[in-house]
Write a protein that binds this DNA or RNA. Structure first.
Length: 517
RNA sequence: GGGCCUGUAGCUCAGCUAGGUAGAGCAUCUGGCUUUUAACCAGGUGGCCAAGGGUUCGAAUCCCUUCAGGCCCGCCA
């Protein structure tokens, strides 16, 4: 059984509406670990619906959290915002409502492409609206109990004047520099290291925030959360999950949600990613280089508790090939191999939208990577595909959209992540600087004559090159090298027959002519 | 110190969430192909499933112990 079905079955033991939660503090580029989290929830969510359960998928943006420090990707000037809620800090690019939105919005856009449609909550709004008021009051009433739970389970000593509420200083707007002096419902008197002394009324929204270890369980209760996966950094003994369980059950009188712990996604050759160190690959970027169904496949095909090594180099091509293969197996075009576990469910969960009725038109991704280097736009790529009969004239609109989308991803990958070895540029404008000896020139001119009369097809081109190299008695290696040099200015290139057939025949003829004369 | 994950073919890994003759890709070898961006096709070689114990008619798979490697936590969220 697929892992998502196992989790869904677990949840279905209780016959009620399930709320599957995920979330993140958008304090920087949202990295692919969060992509894993939300796709994990999405998988369970879909399985629940599939089994006839009632469920909702939600995403909570912790945008009322304070900025902890000036991260490497921020300008020095952000020093003055450290300690302020990220929803209250200006956007680094100026185009968004706030610092938090700057990172959140583009991530939410990415979610659309991979077909995840959660209901989005923003902590800053929830606090300001007063949604948290009751939870805050309960926390304050149970201050000692909460303190005891946290101290006992996390084995951490909390300060004497600790309260389960971080007050926002009304003068300097920071949340990390205030200290409570006196609490008498509903007023907390506080002083701030900026020198300000004042008071807040906890019945008023947005005057402060529950600390994380209390905020999390409070939210479970408030939003009726029944399932929430979390990364292994949070799954540690004595961690927020452990204290949260006790707090939600004993203070908020609500059962702790079910969960699964997910492992990290590692970047091949670079190890674990840390957004705070700026070494992370952002979720958006990962999605830009990987077709959405393939990205989902990567997550769905791996149990959450296994770490995934993502190879943004040539390994990405293998991943796409693997996906395509699973697709052929799903549609019965190929026999499943032993070990292709749960291939049906895995394939279905990999679909951003609903599973297609018949197999999408497949074109080897590697080939697409070559094509996008020959033609700049999808229209031009399409022309080549049609001319060389690599796609049928009556290709469906869906298939075309799919191929078009894949070329976009291939192009992004090529420009930003592909190793140089597979890059080339067809020198259409001017001929590359090459010095050829007489033999090579003779070879080319003979080749030109022969090419002129053939049908412009990969196989024919391939054969003609061999034939000519034999006639002219030059090594086949030299023959290939010569052609690559005059077309792309390199000594090696993509498989010659297919490559040339994708180029314009007249261009090739003209180029040879220019070189030979 | 605590927690999690991993250990299966030369390499990378699947199979462990159904206990029932050990699987794939790459590499290698053979044959074919007029060897071209980690080429393609057909086939072959290759494994005491880390070690030990237990449960079972039967264990890579479940349980216990040991060894080795990786990651996370012991600031904040």
């Amino acid at each position: 059984m697929h892992w998502a079905d196992v989790l869904a079955d677990e949840l279905l033991k209780e016959d009620k509406k399930h709320v599957l939660a995920t979330g993140i503090t958008p304090s920087g580029p949202i990295h692919i670990g969060n992509m894993r989290e939300i796709l994990t929830s999405d998988a369970v969510y879909r399985c629940l619906l599939h089994k006839g359960g009632e469920a909702e998928l939600i995403y909570v943006a912790d945008d009322f959290d304070p900025l902890r420090k000036v991260y490497p990707y921020l300008p020095k000037s952000y020093e003055k915002y450290v300690g302020m809620p990220i929803s209250e800090i200006p956007c680094p690019c100026g185009k968004h409502k706030s610092y938090a939105d700057h990172y959140l919005i583009s991530f939410l856009e990415s979610l659309k492409e991979i077909g995840v449609k959660p209901r989005v909550y923003r902590a800053n709004e929830m606090y300001k609206n007063g949604d948290y008021n009751e939870a805050i009051q309960i926390a304050m009433e149970n201050m000692d109990k909460i303190k005891e739970i946290i101290q006992k389970i996390s084995k951490r000593q909390l300060p004497k004047n600790w309260i389960p509420f971080n007050i926002l200083c009304s003068k300097c707007k920071r949340m990390t520099s205030t200290e409570a002096v006196l609490y008498e419902y509903p007023i907390i008197e506080y002083k701030c290291s900026c020198g300000y002394e004042g008071e807040v009324d906890i019945r008023q929204g947005g005057v402060g925030k529950l600390p994380w270890r209390v905020d999390w369980p409070a939210r479970w209760k408030m939003l009726n959360v029944t399932f929430e996966p979390f990364g292994k950094d949070l799954g540690t003994v004595g961690g927020a999950r452990d204290t949260g369980e006790r707090i939600v059950e004993e203070i908020y009188n609500y059962p702790a949600p079910k969960y699964t712990v997910y492992e990290f996604i590692l970047l091949k050759g670079k190890g674990a990613m840390h957004s705070s160190k700026g070494t992370a690959l952002s979720a958006e970027e990962m999605l830009k280089m990987t077709p959405p169904e393939v990205l989902r496949f990567l997550i769905m095909n791996n149990q959450p508790n296994k770490h995934i090594v993502f190879d943004s180099g040539l390994g990405l091509l293998n991943l796409v090939d693997e996906y395509d293969r699973w697709e052929r197996v799903y549609f019965g075009k190929e026999e499943p191999v032993k070990g292709m576990k749960d291939y049906k469910k895995t394939y279905e969960l990999s679909q951003p939208e609903k599973t297609p009725d018949e197999i999408p038109y497949q074109l080897p991704y590697r080939h697409l990577v070559t094509l996008v280097q020959i033609a700049d736009t999808w229209e031009d790529v399409k022309k080549i595909l049609l001319r060389t009969k690599q796609i049928p004239k009556d290709l469906s609109k869906t298939d075309e959209e799919h191929l078009k989308q894949r070329t976009t991803h291939a192009r992004y990958w090529l420009h930003n992540f592909a190793p140089d070895i597979i890059k080339f540029e067809v020198k259409t404008k001017k001929k590359p600087q090459v010095t050829l000896d007489e033999k090579q020139k003779k070879f080319l001119s003979t080749l030109k004559e022969k090419i002129d009369s053939i049908d412009w097809k990969a196989e024919n081109i391939h054969n003609i090159i061999y034939e000519t190299s034999e006639e002219e008695k030059i090594p086949i290696k030299t023959a290939f090298k010569t052609i690559y040099q005059i077309i792309i200015g390199q000594e090696k290139g993509p498989r010659m027959g297919y490559f040339l057939s994708n180029l314009d025949k007249d261009f090739v003829l003209k180029r040879i002519e220019e070189i030979v004369k």
